[in-house]
Amino acid sequence: MNIGHFMTPDVSRVAGTRRETRDTWTLRLEPPRNAAAWSYRPGQFNMLYAFGIGEVPISISGQVAGDGTLLHTVRAVGRVSAALTRLRKGESVGVRGPFGTPWPMDLAVGRDVIVAAGGLGLAPVRPVVRTLLEQRGKFGRVVLLFGARSPAEIVFRREVERWGRRRDAEVLVTVDHASPDWAGHVGVVTTLVKKAAFDPGNTVAMLCGPEVMMRFMVAALRSSAVPDDAMFLSMERNMKCAIGQCGHCQFGADFVCRDGPVLRYDRVRDRLSVREL
């Protein structure tokens, strides 16, 4: 009996790497040999396998238009992620996916869009920002609120600066701890909400970052009258299978891998306030 199934990775070649910060790298991956092309929707993730070491969920942080390679931005926080950040051009990685629910791009059409990200939380929403700016006419005001621990921790820095020069988007960046050369905002990302211009009754907000950051961001947006059903969060949990069978990623009744990671706030509202759920 052949049990080559959803737990068996395809093999993908690393087409290139880029160092984003001290401990964070972006891997550019070629489509696996037996895959015609890679398609994904912003917000989804792949399971990446480092040979002999292990497998972890990594969100897709973009796609290169020319060659269809997929971008995954990885911070070295554990054994597997550290091994992934050591991969270099020409080496191979195991891939399963893409998995999970996408950001509500259709719902955002015709509305103001707030993208709020903390730290590496910018990676899963970078495809959103790129889409918003590429198809700028389809959306109302575009607001990016981004917080990093320090200027050195800002991922995709040059791209964020490019976004910041656009006149048709409001890009507000803050850091918790400034360096001498930092001339921007200092403070937590929630303080940016009242600096941004948007119509709360006609807004879609997409939040990605540490859970505590998302909780406070939700509170700030609520106090600006953004309704609960217009806010979307990307949740993170331990995952082994990515299809709702290993049980690890449960968050209440939801399997974060399958029912999430992107979940509408009103669905998880009461669970977010329960510690250790």
Binding site: M1, N2, I3, G4, H5, M7, T8, P9, D10, V11, R13, F51, G52, G90, E91, S92, G94
Partner: peptide, 23 residues
């Protein structure tokens, strides 16, 4: 416990092969 697959290093990459269920 179930072994799901094995992977073998090749010159510059690796290959994954499925493992038959021993049942």
């Amino acid at each position: 416990a179930t072994t799901l697959w094995r992977a073998r290093r090749t010159d510059d990459s690796f290959e994954v092969e499925t493992v038959a269920d021993e049942a």
